[in-house]
Structures are given as structure tokens and as C-alpha cells.
Nucleic acid binder design. Structure first.
Lengths: 142, 142
DNA sequence: AACTACATTATAATTGTTCTAAACTGTTGA
DNA sequence: TCAACAGTTTAGAACAATTATAATGTAGTT
């Protein structure tokens, strides 16, 4: 259980005012054991369910983007339907279950280190993301 | 230069009627040396430029999806702005240049084989995609 | 030629996301 | 303590990508 003051410090440190809404969103996002993979809609739903309170959708978008920019969240590229975010900001990869639309973290040992032997001239590698799509045996390949 | 009859056969073989529109789209997509990475908008633009003819946007969407379902195109997950497609349907990975929004194919030797050591119970791996985001040195990480 | 199922089309509808402008609130410092 | 200001929240409008609709057109078969 992370204390509210910790969130306040965290926000202040990164130049974000610790508003009521942001603190509530911190609670929902970071007060949990496992990492949380979510879409904006999932998050909005969690907020209204867990806190029985409504935060404007615009604020949820603003806050998630602010948190992403500050490095508290990672955005994950899965498909173009919607944006997925991850509270696990460490360098890691994902399984994506096409049957349930669930993301699952890859652990360090689940996948061998990716070894890239070419580089694009004048460019620097910003990130390397591996997405492993899985589905029940009887499903078609997408 | 691929002949029209080949496209007709290709379409018929997969149970798609070779309509004027589909043949034109085939021309634009498959009558080129290099692989083509595109969004629906890119394609619609290419069609009107190369063929000086307009195909309804709905048809472009329908056709691209039909081609994808038949395995003639691959969809690539980059971000949630829009869908990207690839005429290279072989198993390969991508660089994505964040400065120009351009996709670049990884060749077989650019990246070592991905070795996945875990599997999700009851699930089968459908695809493994690696996306390497690059940008000029002076850009921020996204 | 006529029938039928499949395709195309323009347009409406939908969805996820961003923008806007007004109201509100944390912070600073007098 | 309180005024002032910049940063924040908000509802709703606007927007862009995509999908649905329903009428019209066309390929393939008889």
C-alpha cells in the first residue's frame, strides 16, 4: 500500500501538480501488486468502479499522457484499435492473447536477448519491442 | 511487370471475384520491385495518382482487408494512429523511423532469430513481431 | 438473357482521441 | 491569509480513422 504522500512527492518531483484527480489515478494505477495493462477505457472503468467517482475522460487522457511523458507509463503497440499502456516501465516484451485481448508480460528469461546487427545511418535505436501474438490452437492466424 | 491475367488467377484462386477495382489495386500494390509499406490513405493516394482514377474509400478498405485475410498483405502494429500494411508477407521484422514515419524491412541477417522459451498454456504462437523504433540522435525517446 | 450472389458506392454512423474555452484549484509570495 | 496567476479539469465539440448501411452495379452461371 503506497501512501498518498509518496504520490504527491512523485508528482511534484516531475513538475506535475498533485491534484485530487491525479492522485486518484495514481492510486488506481500504482497501488497494485501486478503490473496493469490497460486502455484508457479500462482505466476510466476502474476509476469509477474502485473509487465510485467520475473523472472526466479528458482528464484521464491528459493524465495518462502526462504520466507517459514523465516515464511512469509505457505505451505498447498492439493494433490500431486503441492504445494500450503498461505500468511496468522496465524494458520487457509482451504476449498478446488474441482470444481475450489480454496482454501478458514477458519475463527476462522468457525470451533471449534481441541482437540487432544493422543500424540505420544517422539514427539511434529508441526502443525494441517484441510482441508475440497467441491464440487457441483452433483459431485462424490473424 | 506482372500480367493482369496473373492477378485474375490469383484472385479467383482465393475465391475473390476479379473486379476492375481489385485488379487496379493489385497493380498498385504488387506491380513494384520493393515491398510497399502503406496506410489506407497512402494507397488511396497512390491509386488516384498512378491510375488517375478514383476508387471509393470503402472499396479500398474492403479490398485491403480481403487481401489481408487471404494472406496477400500483412498488417503491422506500430501505434494506434492508423493501420500499416506490408506487401512483404514473409516472416520479417521492422525498423520504424519516428522522424519520418517510415517503415523499413529488417532482413534475415539484421536480427538474430528470436528464441522464445515460454509458452502460454493452451495457446499457440501465431506471430512474433519485432519493432525497432529509431530516430535522430537529438530526438527524445517516445 | 436473366438470375443470383457478390462488389462497389456514397454517405451515415461509430469509435477512439484531441481540442476548446470556461470554470476551478494549487502554489507563491505579499 | 489572501490575491493573483499559472496550471488543471471539465463537458462537449471537433476530428480522423474505420466500419456499417442500403441502394445500385456487375461477374459468373444457367
Amino acid at each position: 500500500m503506497i501512501k498518498n504522500t509518496e504520490f504527491i512527492d512523485k508528482l511534484r518531483l516531475s513538475g506535475l501538480r498533485p491534484t485530487k484527480q491525479r492522485l486518484k489515478i495514481c492510486e488506481v494505477l500504482f497501488n497494485r501488486e501486478k503490473t496493469f495493462h490497460f486502455t484508457i477505457n479500462d482505466l476510466a472503468k476502474s476509476i469509477s468502479e474502485q473509487l465510485n467517482e467520475k473523472i472526466s475522460l479528458a482528464t484521464v487522457y491528459n493524465t495518462v499522457h502526462a504520466f507517459k511523458d514523465k516515464g511512469y507509463l509505457k505505451e505498447i503497440s498492439i493494433n490500431s484499435d486503441k492504445s494500450y499502456f503498461d505500468t511496468n516501465i522496465s524494458n520487457h516484451h509482451h504476449f498478446f492473447d488474441e482470444d481475450t485481448n489480454q496482454l501478458i508480460d514477458c519475463h527476462e528469461d522468457d525470451i533471449e536477448k534481441i541482437n540487432i546487427k544493422r543500424n540505420i545511418t544517422g539514427k539511434k535505436i529508441k526502443s525494441v519491442e517484441v510482441l508475440i501474438k497467441v491464440a487457441s490452437d483452433n483459431q485462424n492466424q490473424n
